[in-house]
Design a protein around this nucleic acid. Sequence first.
DNA 1: CATGTTTCCTGACAGC
DNA 2: TGCTGTCAGGAAACAT
Length: 312
Amino acid sequence: MPELPEVETIARGVDKRVRGRTIVSVWLGSKPEPFRSKAAEIVDALTGSVIERVHRIGKHIVVDLTRPNPSKGRNARRSSPVSDGKHPRLDPHPWRGQWLVHLGMTGRLLVCVPQEPLPSHTHAILELDDAREIRFVDPRRFGRLSVLDLSAPAEKPRKHAEKKEIHSQGFVGTGQEPLEISLADFRALFRGRRTPIKSALLNQKLLHGVGNIYADESLFRAGIRPRRQAGRLTGRELERLHGAIQSVLREAIALGGSSVSDYVDADGAKGFFQLEHKVYLRTGEPCLVCGAPIRRILIAGRGTHFCPHCQH
DNA sequence: CATGTTTCCTGACAGC
DNA sequence: TGCTGTCAGGAAACAT
């Protein structure tokens, strides 16, 4: 299941491969679940657009798009410079947009040549101008695709804008970045919350990017039991947790993420952080620090792994 | 508002 | 072998 380190790995890989390319055509599958925007809006936003950059915010892959010469009437601008046919000048006011990809549980974003056999559960294909394509594949269909039109008038709030996920400059995510948040802000996130710390870590409106694997691994590293009330952790414990989350995520990114179930990066390569897991999916196995059997409980419907001896 | 529960999906796996 | 049932889990929708 792709969490922050996996999404970061994929975004970097896709960026390296497709930055600067133009999307020539778009195919979307007929299953509706993966599409958060209307199919026509996705096709409109992507077709003919240049991929300026691919990056990560929370668990979302964000693809920045521009289109120097809008073709659709809705996007046309009076100020579009007229090309002289020889010198395609840079438009000072290009159409701008973003393609947002959430991989859910089983989503993949792959860059390959069209000759590569098409996996089943392929929901979107973007043909590029260098005869390669970007494929979105997701068997379980928990993943989501959407587009943002950043050139739309700012007066009328865009979709999701009221949820404060969208800034005028684009998608900003649902919560705070775990790798950037200060200790003071981190502490403030949990103040007064009675929910278990594990649930709070999974809440994307607080921190975004941490999922089940890294919540469990971080709590183990910080020596904190997952059922502890978030608001009752001591300052010292929150400081350990803040450090644990950041070190776990950084190490995982360095190893290309964790390949459990079927996670692969943009090249189809696996990560290696699953070899470093201390508690996740190790139910009944001895703790690597003290030897006590790792326990598994259910919190907020999620399998939660911890060492009953090392975590308090 | 805060928190807990249900729902969506398919592949993997257990049991017969 | 092949069927059926169960389960996992991110996040939105719904309930309390």
